[in-house]
Simulated assay, not measured.
Amino acid sequence: MTGIRVIGIETTQVKHAQRLMAEHRALIEQIARQAPLTEVLDGMARCIEDLAPQEVLASVLLADPDGQHLRHGAAPSLPGFYNEAIDGIATGEGVGSCGTAAHRRQPVIVTDITTDPFWTDFRDLADRAGLAACWSTPILARDGGLLGTFAMYHRTPRVPQDTDLALAAVFAGTAALAIERHHSEQARQAAEARAKAAHDELAKVVSSERHLRAEAERRAAAAAELTARMRTAAAAQAAMPHPEHCQLGGRPGCTAPAEIKIADSWGDAAWGCPDHVEEAIINVRSVFIASEELGGLAAYVNR
């Protein structure tokens, strides 16, 4: 044996890359099975915090539909008071790291919050939360629309390395996929709800139309029957001008006193009780009150 050659391989980065791929694959699977957006984003933030070589606090803010404000999405390690304070911040130049990144549609790297002008209005809040640096990356849809921001906070001032920027880009893309999938699902559910509402409304209209048609047919039949009764009563009045009992009760007859005289435009007249007279007035269009001793229609209405 003339010699020995030893080859050393740094496995830390390899293992780190393998773990990153495994975690990323798990997130994609969550998105594919349509896990709740909050669950996906929270898991993504925790994954980044676990994979980062130094302490990092991850945050995802979601853009309003108009793109003018950012809402809390996920930030498992940031203080609750901090999340509440920035929930709903406006997008715009100089509005912290995230508001500016959303406005510019470009990453914004703030390495020292205590001196950066973007954080003038939020410096005290960041100090209370123990935050010293914030790197924010916009989350963009495939058409370039704003979906939100992905931020990496640090306890001490820090300048990002290439690996940090690559990690942010990868997970910003993953967040975009999750958010777009969520928006698509919301749109689908809204469309289904509108379709169901339209179907239900159509069913109501059809039911109402059937009811009205049946009512119209019933009224037409009642009108025809009452008209026939009036003609029969008119023929009988030659012998008895004012009968004792109501003439409008139909085949069974009506034993109520004949109090009111009605007539139609063809000259047929009949005497009836108040109930049957009212039925005739409602169902036969040309019928009017002809009782002279009661003063006609006006007096009957007043009565």
Rank of each mutant, 00 (worst) to 15 (best):
M1E: 12
T12K: 15
T12M: 15
T12C: 14
Q13G: 14
Q13V: 12
V14C: 14
K15W: 04
Q18R: 11
Q18P: 03
A22W: 06
H24E: 05
H24A: 14
R25Y: 06
I28W: 09
I31A: 14
A32V: 02
P36V: 04
P36H: 01
E39V: 07
V40L: 01
L41N: 00
G43T: 13
R46I: 12
C47I: 14
L51M: 11
A52G: 08
P53M: 02
Q54T: 15
V56K: 10
V56A: 14
S59Y: 01
L61P: 01
L61Q: 03
L62F: 01
A63R: 02
D64L: 10
R71I: 00
H72E: 09
A75G: 09
P76Q: 03
L78W: 00
G80M: 01
Y82R: 02
Y82T: 01
N83I: 06
I86C: 12
G88L: 10
T91K: 00
G92F: 08
E93M: 10
E93V: 12
G94E: 01
V95G: 08
C98H: 04
P107A: 01
T111Q: 14
T111G: 09
D112R: 05
T115E: 02
T115M: 00
P117K: 07
P117F: 12
P117T: 10
D121P: 12
R123M: 03
D124Y: 02
A126Q: 01
A126G: 00
R128G: 02
L131H: 10
L131F: 09
A132H: 14
W135C: 10
W135T: 11
S136N: 10
I139C: 06
R142F: 09
G144N: 13
G145V: 10
L146A: 14
T149C: 04
F150G: 03
A151L: 11
A151Y: 07
Y153A: 08
Y153K: 03
T156A: 03
R158Q: 14
R158W: 13
Q161K: 13
L167W: 03
T174V: 12
A175Q: 13
H183V: 15
Q186N: 11
A187G: 12
A190Q: 15
R194V: 12
A197Y: 09
H199A: 15
A203V: 07
A203R: 07
V205Y: 07
V206F: 04
V206E: 07
S208G: 00
R210H: 09
L212K: 13
L212S: 14
E215A: 15
R218F: 13
R218P: 11
E225C: 02
M230S: 07
A233K: 09
A236V: 13
A239F: 02
P241W: 11
H242F: 04
H242E: 14
P243L: 00
H245W: 03
H245M: 01
C246E: 00
G249S: 00
G250M: 04
P252Y: 05
K261G: 03
K261S: 06
A263T: 08
D264K: 06
W266F: 07
G267W: 03
A269H: 06
C273W: 01
C273F: 02
P274A: 08
P274Y: 11
D275L: 06
H276G: 02
V277K: 05
E279F: 10
V284F: 05
R285L: 05
S286P: 06
V287A: 12
I289S: 04
I289G: 02
I289R: 03
A290K: 05
S291W: 08
S291P: 08
E293G: 04
L294F: 04
L297W: 02
V301I: 04
V301L: 09
N302Y: 09
R303E: 11
